Simulated assay, not measured.
Amino acid sequence: MTDFIASAGVYLPILLKGVWLTIAVTLLSLGLATLLGLIWALFRTSGIRWLALATRIFVEFVRGVPILVVLFYIYFVMPEFGLDLTAFQAGVVGLALTYSCYIGETFRAGIEAVDKGQVEAAKSIGMKTPMMMRRVVLPQAFRIVVPPYANNMVMLLKDSSQVSVISVAELTMQGKMLASSTFDNMTVFTLVALLYLCLTIPLNFAMRRVEVAMGSAK
């Protein structure tokens, strides 16, 4: 135990550099994924058949491709089409694109769960679709989707480790490099696991509080 504590004191400053990058990747990816997911959900529920069908095909395609393949494609293939991104940018875009499809389906389910009677009532008093969505449908849908959205947030935080495959030096990558140079695999990866827990446990707790505040908790 003494050796572990001594080694941890040496390794933690190095690993914490990866923690900050993990947080940056997660927050940027989550913000973009949420925006795109809302767009996909609105397209799917727009009532425009060709738009809903095209969005559905796109969502199912992206969800059917592993995140690693998406990251490789954006980082290694897209430059051939003129889109040359840094590893960090490619990681954020790849995670955001993948998770936007999961979040979009979560939002779609929330929108479709809103009582149809309220939608009809809004239309009967002359509300246009944009106003109806903004004032009636979306506020209720957001309360419904808080629990699954929180789950997507935690999964995205953990899946941010996938960007290490394109050389983004987040927490997992820092752990790999440190372990390969020190050969102290047990200590390094134990610390990596503990640091992920330090990120996910407070996030779970915070989202649980949000669920209670919004009346989504059961």
Rank of each mutant, 00 (worst) to 15 (best):
L21P: 00
I5Y: 13
L156M: 14
T26Q: 04
V168S: 01
G64T: 10
A169Q: 13
F4L: 14
V93H: 03
G110C: 06
T190S: 15
T55Q: 01
L53Q: 13
G9V: 07
I166T: 08
W40I: 06
L171I: 01
F43D: 05
Q162Y: 10
I5L: 15
V154C: 11
L156H: 03
Q140F: 09
A109R: 04
E60G: 05
V77Q: 10
V62D: 07
Q162H: 06
D3H: 12
L53E: 13
L83F: 15
S167V: 14
E211P: 02
L157P: 00
M186G: 09
L15G: 00
D115A: 14
F58Q: 12
K128P: 01
V136A: 07
F72M: 11
Y102R: 07
T172V: 09
D184I: 03
L199R: 03
M153C: 15
L38F: 15
Q162C: 05
P147W: 09
V59L: 07
L38V: 14
E120C: 02
K17G: 10
F81C: 05
L21G: 01
V69D: 07
V188E: 08
L51S: 10
E112Y: 03
S216V: 09
V114Y: 02
L97K: 06
C101S: 12
S124N: 02
A6V: 05
L36V: 12
D184W: 03
V212H: 13
V163N: 05
E120K: 08
S216G: 07
D115V: 06
T182E: 02
M214T: 14
S124E: 01
P148C: 12
L178T: 10
R63M: 12
I103D: 01
L21E: 00
V10A: 12
R63T: 11
T172K: 00
D3I: 11
M214R: 14
A24F: 05
R208K: 14
I166L: 10
K218R: 13
G31W: 08
S100M: 08
T98M: 11
V93T: 08
M207Q: 07
Q89W: 06
Y149E: 02
L138C: 10
G31K: 08
R44M: 14
A96W: 02
F76W: 13
M131E: 10
Y73W: 15
L32C: 11
L95T: 01
F72V: 03
T86R: 08
K123Q: 15
A41E: 03
C198F: 11
A150V: 09
V210C: 07
L71Q: 07
Q140L: 11
V136G: 01
S181C: 02
I57R: 08
P13D: 07
R208T: 15
V145Q: 00
A33G: 02
V10K: 13
K116N: 12
V145R: 00
I5A: 14
P13I: 07
V168L: 03
A150N: 09
K116E: 09
R63S: 13
K17Q: 15
A141W: 05
V25H: 00
A87D: 08
A6F: 05
L12H: 04
E105G: 04
G64M: 11
V136T: 12
T200R: 06
I144H: 10
V137C: 10
A169D: 11
I5D: 04
Y11I: 09
L12D: 02
L16M: 15
Y102S: 07
L16K: 03
E112A: 12
T26W: 06
